[in-house]
Design a binder for these strands. Structure first.
Lengths: 252, 252
DNA sequence: CGTGTGATTGAAATGCTTCAATTATCGTGG
DNA sequence: CCACGATAATTGAAGCATTTCAATCACACG
């Protein structure tokens, strides 16, 4: 009997899980963009400029730059990343339509942002944004809520990277993207991947080769089908969900 | 010539790195606890209760519980964790002396908190805390700053889990802990690990066995020496720093 | 002293990375 | 529209990293 390491038993897992899945993990979470009232959205749009970016465009901003603008995604997708000392890049989060990003950290951007596909952004000068906050306390609360939301997102990412193997991480990403009508056609079960395998790898904490192999594995298991590199057909959503749990290494 | 995947070149890495390391990654970052003014700290302490926890104690709180209190670490160390659907636990962050944690997420705790060793906490009722914020706008700002700080910490964790192998993750943790005078005696170069290999594994996203092996490897490389399972001697700090970079798999 | 727990070590198997080569896809110009 | 070149994506093969199951060792505590 190996009871060593059974430090596990000191928790009350079942109850926790039940409650947690009601509230925290539910996939149909509200996007943070929805946290702004219609009036706030109008105020913001009135002082915003629409900016167009293509995949080949320069960065929207780069870590270390002075932060003069805040952005909201109108369409497309933005990758927010940071580089390690060794010069390797990790994508921290993808910003989807409705998401707001680019808040200054002591006056500077902490991360880099770049469009992963053709993308339109609303750009708001930070000076005007903070002015707006001074007049509308609700707006200040919205900023706080947004940062709190980002924190929860980041914690979810830590869970994924800490507990799941690459196959499960990809499944998680696919299921995540499926909650966005911008990318998933629920009728036809077609999911558009607006990013390269390279970006995907940097998000999942792996290499493009492994992404390709794992993609092939999900296809072999008949969970998805690759129509083209950037277009998937979802064959078995429940199967994808089921693949998330379990251990990091299969039993045989 | 394989130029495929050389999407790398689209960045301005050197400059980024230089600037980043001045500000963002600097190890001597201020702990968030220092963000409270002395007066705020006094206000808080006047409405706080000191709570003592031992390693064998119940959780301080559990994910999904109604959130009635916020906590600050007086001494010891608290692990903040969350359980996956499969029931596996990931430690998101360790709270050190001076850190504040347990902010409600829509009235509930999003994570679980438990002492990893004998620990003393200041406990403040959330109702009084929010009352205090109503009177002292600075306090509100401090809360925001704290959440923003937690976000940056979480993002740093994503970098570690996404880019580093287990050996590098452990080195990162050791270097991190060394910045805390509570745990590191810089004179004698002795670092106290106030937690079990099990907790360490759940933090690093691996298993206790691998932690033990990696610990042995750092010792073989003469970077550290194990005095006892919970007490290390730091033999080569610069070597630890150097081990962080590089690829995930050694070149030969 | 046992006993139980935490920590380490062993051995086998699998996952992942790496380097290399091949195939597919996309954009562009003829 | 097709051909072409460049880039993206996939596949192969070898080797290292990590997990897993199992066994052993160390140590604190009754």
């Amino acid at each position: 009997m190996t009871l060593a390491f059974d430090n596990e038993l000191d928790d009350h897992l079942p109850q926790i899980r039940a409650r947690r899945f009601e509230r925290i993990q539910s996939r149909s979470r509200p996007r943070a963009g929805n946290l702004l009232t219609p009036r706030q959205q109008t105020s913001l749009k009135s002082i915003s400029t629409i900016m167009e970016y293509r995949r080949s465009s320069e960065h929207v901003f780069t870590e270390g730059d002075e932060a003069h603008f805040v952005y909201a995604v109108a369409s497309g997708m933005v990758r927010v990343s940071r580089c390690s000392e060794a010069g390797r890049r990790q994508i921290l989060i993808f910003m989807m339509p409705g998401d707001v990003f680019g808040f200054p950290d002591e006056g500077y951007y902490a991360n880099s942002a770049k469009a992963v596909c053709d993308t339109a952004l609303y750009r708001v000068p930070w000076s005007q944004f903070s002015e707006l906050m001074r007049h509308e306390p609700d707006m200040q609360m919205s900023l706080f809520t947004r940062v709190a939301f980002d924190l929860r997102q980041a914690q979810k990412r830590i869970m994924v990277l800490g507990l799941q193997n690459v196959s499960q991480r990809l499944a998680t990403f696919i299921l995540d993207l499926m909650t966005h009508a911008d990318f998933y056609d629920a009728q036809k079960r077609k999911l558009a991947l607006p990013l390269s395998r390279f970006d995907l790898a940097e998000y999942l904490g792996t290499t493009p080769e492994t992404v390709a192999r794992v993609m092939a594995k999900l296809e072999k298991d008949n969970l998805i089908q690759r129509i083209s590199p950037r277009l998937l057909e979802i064959r078995n959503e429940a199967g994808l969900e089921r693949s998330l749990g379990g251990r990091r290494r299969a039993l045989n």
